[in-house]
Simulated assay, not measured.
Amino acid sequence: MKIVIADDHAIVRSGFSMILNFQEDMEVIAMAADGIEAYQMVAKHQPDVLLLDLSMPPGESGLVATGKIKEDFPETKILILTMHDDEEYLFHVLKNGASGYMLKSAPDEELLQAIRVIYSGGTYIHPKMATSLVRELVNKDHKVKESDPFELLSKREIEVLPLVAKGYGNKEIAQKLFISVKTVEAHKAKIMEKLQLKSRPELVEYVLKKKLLNF
């Protein structure tokens, strides 16, 4: 199987590459340092599996890249690799099309197992996180959960949100995302409306609470 590795740490990419290339049924064909490069490598090589780090500051995160890559290259299976054992991240990436979610602290054997599972069409979730997922599904059967307004945001709005929180101006955000200033203003207005926020301090507080600042 052809594999692309996306992680912002070169030593992590090299380590994973050595482990995978040692396997008879795996070959690492490209590597990337952030979500944008990951998209480019997937577009160029059409891999069977993409190992995607969730957080890759200051570049585009796996949280944002997952939806874009899955939408344009549905045949590529995405395995999220992360240090975050946070169920909100788990739910979001699975909703965006990821086939697996595992912690970087897991042993090598689990990584290999996860890759083979998702390559064959299955879904792999780290046991610790699977418990949270099952609990969430069970809870949905017993009570109606209040919807999270974050789920209403578009992929582009998810990109704009942390940049606004970091204090970037409209022009700077437009340059970073290759869109017009008017488009940025429109996205900001939609974000404030969807999240029911009235000021930038409230927005910053929301981003910090959701642990989205690095994204």
Rank of each mutant, 00 (worst) to 15 (best):
T131W: 14
S199M: 08
V117P: 07
T131P: 05
L153D: 03
D53S: 07
S180K: 00
M26T: 05
A130V: 08
V93T: 04
V144A: 15
I69Q: 02
K188M: 08
Y206W: 06
L161Q: 01
V12S: 01
K198Y: 13
I125K: 07
K166R: 15
S132D: 13
L212C: 00
T76N: 01
S55P: 02
G15S: 10
F22L: 15
V93C: 12
K155W: 15
T82K: 02
E60P: 01
Y101R: 00
E24A: 12
K190E: 15
K128P: 01
A114I: 11
D72Q: 09
R13K: 00
L153S: 03
L90R: 03
V49G: 07
P149N: 09
P47Y: 05
K188H: 13
V181C: 06
P74S: 11
N21C: 00
I78K: 01
Y206A: 03
G121R: 02
A32K: 03
K140W: 13
G67F: 10
S132R: 12
M31C: 13
M83F: 12
V12G: 06
S61T: 07
P201S: 05
L152S: 10
M102Y: 06
A186V: 10
K95A: 11
M18Y: 13
L161G: 02
E27H: 11
V204I: 11
D48A: 10
Q46V: 08
V204K: 08
V42E: 09
Q113L: 14
I5C: 04
H92R: 15
E75I: 01
K166A: 13
H187Y: 10
E159P: 04
E60D: 11
G97W: 01
V184W: 06
